[in-house]
């Protein structure tokens, strides 16, 4: 049983096709890395899983994206509930202009939870989960903007975790961070794997190698190769994959 499947997926921004016939299946509790040169469609593909591309005018999708057995683009699908199940962490830390506490509580509140004690417990629990608690426990009522970039990004991960999704999408989550913050986030991803299915876009090959179980290589809107990370990095079947990876390493 796969957690996420995409079958013959095409995607269009207006007249221009950004994804061509993508077939891919992701097992639960794994980390999948999406790699490839800039503009090849990684973000576009990732954002299909929580229907974030719906926000862009004039877009069109063909094919099927199936999560937990259901086609998420079928008629009558509740997008808000889908997004509760599929959390997302963005490239740049983007906390709300609210307090640290309220940032993490936001997802709970918009989902109708009002029990104060429950919210407090869940907020504390998730902030601990992203190993941020010791750094912020004394300033939960301060603005989230007062945190460093790396702390903000971990806060954004906590914000996504608070509503307990089963899938987490990450679009270059460490590209705006320093090396120490980056390794903290990577450790976190490694731990989160036990509970969540994670799909991560990254330009950092070492990172893909460190955190992912499987890797998908995209090139100009096409999925060129998809295999275990080990195979992709040591023994890719397609030459273009090989070139890209060695190019990136070299």
């Amino acid at each position: 049983m796969y957690k996420i499947e995409s079958k013959n997926v095409d995607f269009f921004y207006g007249p221009s096709q950004a994804l061509k016939n993508i077939n891919l299946a992701i097992k639960p509790n794994t980390v999948t890395a999406l790699i490839g040169p800039s503009g090849c469609g990684k973000s576009t593909y990732l954002r299909l899983f929580n229907r974030m591309n719906d926000l862009i005018d004039n877009t069109k999708i063909a094919g099927q994206v199936i999560i937990d057995g259901d086609d998420i683009y079928a008629k009558g699908v509740n997008v808000d509930s889908l997004r509760k199940k599929v959390g997302m962490v963005f490239q740049k830390p983007n906390p709300f202009p609210k307090t640290i506490f309220e940032n993490v509580a936001y997802g709970l509140r918009v989902n109708g939870i009002t029990d104060k004690k429950f919210i407090e417990e869940r907020v504390e629990e998730t902030i601990k989960q992203v190993v941020l608690w010791d750094e912020v426990k004394d300033k939960l009522k301060k603005s989230a903007f007062e945190l460093s970039g790396g702390q903000q990004q971990r806060l954004c991960i906590a914000r996504a975790l608070a509503i307990q999704p089963s899938i987490i999408l990450m679009d270059e989550p460490t590209s705006a961070l320093d090396p120490i913050s980056t390794s903290k986030v990577e450790e976190l991803i490694y731990e989160l794997k036990t509970k969540y299915t994670i799909v991560i876009v990254t330009h950092n090959m070492q990172q893909a190698g460190r955190v992912s179980d499987t890797t998908a290589f995209f090139y100009m809107g096409e999925l060129i190769e998809y295999d275990t990370t080990k195979t992709i990095f040591t023994n890719p079947k397609v030459e273009r994959t090989q070139n890209y990876i060695t190019g990136r390493f070299g």
């Binding site: 974030m52 808000d80 997302m88 740049k92 936001y106 918009v110 509503i163």
Partner: peptide, 27 residues
């Protein structure tokens, strides 16, 4: 209002209206 802020809210399962009055208007 930065697009990223609205997307963050929607990605948490907030509806369009919740995003408007909890993020866009306060911002």
């Amino acid at each position: 209002t930065p697009r990223a802020m609205k997307e963050a809210s929607l990605a948490l399962g907030a509806s369009k209206w919740q995003t408007i009055y909890k993020v866009v208007v306060p911002y």
